[in-house]
Amino acid sequence: PSASPQPPSLPPQVLELLRCDPDELVVQNKIVAHLQQEQSGRGRLDKPSTFSLMCRMADQTLFSIVEWARSCIFFKELRVGDQMKLLHNCWSELLVLDHIFRQVQHGQEDSILLVTGQEVELSFILSQAEATLSSLVQRGQELAVRLRALQVDRREIACLKFLLLFNPNVKLLEDQAFVEGVQEQVNGALLEYTLSTYPQFQEKFSQLVVRLPELRSLSTQAEDYLCYMHLSGEVPCNNLLIEMLHAKRA
């Protein structure tokens, strides 16, 4: 359902943002290869727990998100200090949005599509996970249903990712004006795109943007849970996930 109709004129800016998106299959294969390599190094008997495996997937997905960001238009013009501040601020929202849009495309309410391309029954996850994780997964599914109902498409997601990344509310940015300018441009591009592509749905832009606070709330809950699990020693250490968690909360 998220395949968007051919718009009469695609705003060039949206095309630019879409062009920054990585090839999903390439990302998937990279992550699968990495997890397989890790597992072969661990030996057959040492089976990671479901949660530990999810952490490894999330960690590798985060690597791909950083790779996407650093190759993005506008972002590569920033100094590394500002790049780090922006990513520290929105890494968990980008991770959650990546997961949720995958479920929107998957279109199944009873199962979850993982970044590795594997499909897992929701009932299995809910039977394995304890209450907080279950509620997180459920909330993610509910947001996916709402976005699917909005017929969110890939181009809109590309814009939303930029809106999350270029957040002018991040403190102590060296080039605050630049970030504000990008936020404004992307808002304009998304508005123009939704009005020209979905003329029958004039409110689509505001309906999409209103989902961002929900996304932030969900990602904050996910961070809290990750923090709790990390303190209980459940999260594999020395990875990007934990560094970003600490950086955001420092």
């Binding site: 950083v66 790779e67 780090m84 990007l240 560094e243 970003m244 950086a247």
Partner: peptide
Amino acid sequence: EPEEPSLLKKLLLAPANS
């Protein structure tokens, strides 16, 4: 004690396609 360089910083500063 020098602070361990951030993994994120290393990734952002790594040459493209490294």
